[in-house]
Each structure stands twice: as C-alpha cells, then as structure tokens.
C-alpha cells in the first residue's frame, strides 16, 4: 500500500513539474517574431553605427541645439535637483570628458569649451554584461538598447557604465513640470515617443526609432554644419569612416577595452 502511495506521489510530482515547466517554455518562446514583421524599406541600416564629434566646429549654440533636439525627441524631463537628472546627451569640460589627460597649457578652446558626451555605444558594453535580465542588450548593428518593459531597476548597469551615461527614473517623469502643459496635464514635446515610467534606467539609443524610419539621429540633424558625423564604420566610404581616416580622433577611456563608438576629432 505504501508503495502505491509513493508511486502516486511520484506521478503527482512529475505532473506538477510539467505544469510549471510548460508555461515557462512558452514564455521563453514568446521571443519569436510575429510572422512577416520586417524593418521598413527606408530604414537606415548599418553593420556598426558610429559617430564622430567634430569638436572644433561646435559653438555653444550648436551644442545647445543638439541637446535640445534630443530632449524634445525623447521627452526627457528636466529636474531642478541635479541628483535626479535624466541626461542622454550633455556638456562636460575637457578634464571631465577625458579624466587623467589634462596636459598643461592646453589650447584655450580645448580647456574652455565643453564637449558633448553621450552613450558611447560600446562594442564591448559593460552595462550589457552586468544586466541580469537582458533589459539592456546590444543589437547586431552595435546599438546598445534599453527594453524599458523588462528593466527591474536594479541599477547594476549604472554601476557598470564607465562613462556615467545612464540615468535612472527616481520619480515618475510624467509628474515633472517640464513635461506638463499649463493645465498640469502630461503633454510631451514628442507625442510619437513614449515617456518612461519611474524605476527604470534609460540612456541614449542612437535614435533607433528615427533610424527605423529613415531619419538621422535628432542631435545629428540639429547640427547643420556636420559637427556630428554619423554613419556605418563598417562601410569604408561612409562619411564617418572618411572622417576618421582624415582626422586624428580620441575616445573616452579607451584603456578599459570597451571600444567606444563615439570619436572626438580634436
């Protein structure tokens, strides 16, 4: 009698295991793409997106225009308290952009003029390595993306990013005055782009949503004088490849082996 009870329990156990395994397998299988879904025909594609920042061409106004364009395109809220700031692209002084490389007697414009900094879209992104849920991941074209739906808000990526390029939503961005209209309703500058929710990490996405529609990134478009050169580094004839051949460029913290894809023409 005891043995039949035991075998019954065994069957019960196996059944219970089966019942739990199947939904998890199904959940994992959800990554299958909907049938027939594809990129748009006019989407801009590349093997490895990269950007060159032509530092000398920038003025205070063009830097501001680039930042503004990004903030608007991505509904980035403004926080009075710098502790809670959200920044995708912003200005930093030379010694903060390239710590440890402050030579004496720098040319005045280098020492004085800020640099634009943004996510470096690293070839070996430490943020992707540390993310426990693959909420941040690297696309085949090199763009390091955020999946806001999946992010649990552990902020390991912020500890991992050597460039301080990531921001956390310490509060609900929709409650911030900068994203509200006069009546206090949520009114984002770009209704086509979602806001984020509190408790997730965000960062520059190289305007993946614009590339998909055949548009250049918002900051690049805002710089009318080719201050930002964006393109495919794998394509020998792309503007950015040509720019790198023509000018000497430096990158932020290259010694870490992350292979930043933002190049600064000094």
């Amino acid at each position: 009698m005891d043995s039949t009870r035991r075998s019954f329990l065994k069957i019960l156990g196996v059944t219970a295991a089966g019942l739990t395994v199947r939904p998890s397998v199904e959940a994992l299988a959800m990554g299958v793409k909907p049938k027939g879904a594809a990129p748009f025909d006019n989407a801009l594609t590349a093997k490895r997106w990269a950007m060159a920042v032509d530092v000398g061409k920038f003025t205070g106004e063009t830097r501001k225009a680039a930042i503004e364009a990004c903030n608007k395109a991505h509904n980035i809220p403004h926080y009075e308290n710098h502790l809670h700031e959200i920044k995708w692209i912003w200005e930093e002084g030379y010694k903060h952009t390239f710590p440890g490389q402050e030579n004496e007697h720098l040319p005045a414009e280098i020492a004085r003029e800020p640099f634009l900094v943004l996510c470096n879209q690293c070839v070996n992104p430490p943020c992707v390595r540390v993310c426990p849920t693959q909420a941040t991941f690297q696309r085949p074209d090199g763009i390091v993306m955020m999946d806001y739906h999946r992010c649990i808000g552990c902020r390991f990526c912020m500890a991992g990013c050597p460039y301080g390029s990531r921001s956390f939503n310490w509060f609900d961005p929709r409650q911030q005055a900068s994203l509200k209209d006069a009546e206090g309703n949520f009114s984002p500058p770009n209704p086509e782009f979602p806001s984020r929710t509190k408790g997730v990490v965000e960062k520059c996405n190289f305007c993946a949503e614009r590339l998909a529609k055949g548009q250049m990134p918002a900051c690049v478009e805002a710089c009318k004088n080719n201050e930002l050169i964006f393109g495919d580094l794998d394509d020998h004839e792309s503007e950015v490849s040509k720019a790198l051949r023509k000018h000497f460029t430096i990158r932020r913290k290259p010694e870490l082996g992350t292979q930043p894809q933002i190049y600064y023409i000094i």
């Binding site: 909907p34 879904a37 748009f40 696309r139 998909a212």
Partner: peptide, 29 residues
C-alpha cells in the same frame, strides 16, 4: 506583446496586415 518584442528587441517595425498593407507596429502611433 509580440509587437513589443519585435520592435524593441528585433528592430522589425513594419507589420504586414492581413490586407497586405504594412503598418508601423506602434500602440500610440
């Protein structure tokens, strides 16, 4: 849910409807 995965993670943003027309896979838009 599938659209979301397709757009965010697989960069496939155009959906062929049963009518043959291609739509942007976007809830808001």
């Amino acid at each position: 849910n599938e659209w979301r995965t397709s757009v965010v993670r697989n960069s496939n943003r155009a959906y062929p409807a049963f009518t043959g027309v291609r739509y942007e896979m976007s809830l808001s838009n």
